[in-house]
């Protein structure tokens, strides 16, 4: 919450209501005038029209007043923008990487998460980039958005001033899984956050999940299910159900070949999908190098074995 007179225009909502209020007055004014004229000067009420070519004072007035109004709107938007672009000293930094189609958040101590957990009340700076195409980090609840552009870092900051879970959307279209490129911002008390930040392993392993169980967690957390179903439903990519041990026709360039889905084929599809593609599916699978560790890929393969 941004409060107090000196900060009035730092708030996006205040700028929004300011512009909307002026707009509603203008709209109602124009409409009322228009409708009044149509009835008052209808052919039956006013059979003999009058030619009025122009009126210099009126025209100067209705150019000057809107000019002042729009300049005020510009100023209000600019004020709020400067606030959004000025990161307060001591903000916590989190590196955000977007890729087709998942988010990863890396904290200052090297911890990586697929959910953005943040401590309540502490300003946070997101340093944003992309591993493949243009994405956009959008957290509506905190009125912030900035694109993730491959090859460069962009940033945004905000003050987590309410606890709870909030949506984080991808706001630049990035392909088939765009809609599923959604994560959560979790604002938790500072002491809880400190404990979480020090946890080394993912909670799934800490809870003693099996390898296959961890794999099941991973395909959800890393966004695989945006294209691959786990229940046999047809989707953009092949379903994981019954995949293990299946014979598939693959295309290497224009050459067809028969393969059996085994450990090495699965790993190759995860890390170097551009080498070959399964016939009948578009060549859009992004490499998961850097997203999944070797251990995690192995867990996913274990999970495949259970999906008979």
């Amino acid at each position: 919450m941004i409060t107090g007179w000196p900060n009035l225009w730092n708030s996006t909502d205040n700028a929004f209501y300011f512009i909307i209020a002026i707009s509603i007055v203008l709209l109602l004014g124009i409409m009322a005038t228009m409708i009044f004229f149509v009835f008052r000067y209808s052919r039956s009420r006013n059979p003999r029209p009058t030619n009025i070519e122009h009126n210099a004072w009126l025209e100067i007035l209705w150019t000057a007043i809107p000019t002042v109004l729009v300049l005020a709107m510009f100023w209000v938007g600019w004020k709020g923008f400067i606030y959004k672009r000025t990161v307060p000293a001591g903000a916590m930094q989190v590196k955000v990487t977007g890729r087709m189609w998942s988010w990863s958040f890396e904290y200052e101590n090297g911890k990586i998460s697929s959910v953005l957990k943040l401590p309540f009340g502490k300003p946070v700076k997101l340093l944003i980039t992309s591993a493949d195409v243009v994405h956009g980090v959008f957290i509506p609840a905190f009125r912030v958005k900035e694109d993730a552009v491959p090859g460069r870092d962009t940033y945004l900051w905000f003050q987590p001033d309410k606890t709870g879970e909030f949506e984080l959307f991808c706001s630049e279209f990035c392909g088939t899984g765009h809609t599923k490129m959604v994560s959560t911002v979790e604002i938790i008390p500072e002491n809880e956050f400190a404990v979480w930040l020090q946890q080394k392993e993912t909670p799934a392993l800490a809870q003693g999940l099996s390898q296959a169980g961890l794999g099941a967690e991973l395909v959800r957390a890393k966004g695989c299910v945006a294209c691959h179903s786990t229940d046999g439903t047809a989707a953009t990519g092949p379903t994981f159900k019954g995949l293990w041990g299946k014979k598939e026709t693959v295309l290497r360039g224009s050459q067809e070949a028969q393969v059996t889905v085994d450990e090495s084929f699965a790993r190759s599809k995860i890390f170097s999908p551009e080498k070959e593609r399964i016939k009948g599916f578009p060549p859009i699978m992004p490499s998961q190098r850097g997203v999944l560790s070797e251990k995690e890929a192995a867990a996913i393969v274990e999970y495949f074995k259970t999906l008979r």
Binding site: M31, M73, G77, G80, K84, G136
Partner: peptide, 30 residues
């Protein structure tokens, strides 16, 4: 034409929300 004036006015006035920087950031791409 009368329908145009109403609809185009709304289109133009909401363009002011898009043009202002701080509000644009919220509604961009939505």
């Amino acid at each position: 034409v009368l329908a145009f004036i109403f609809l185009f006015s709304i289109g133009g006035l909401t363009g002011l929300i898009n043009g202002a920087l701080s509000t644009n950031i919220q509604i961009h791409g939505t």
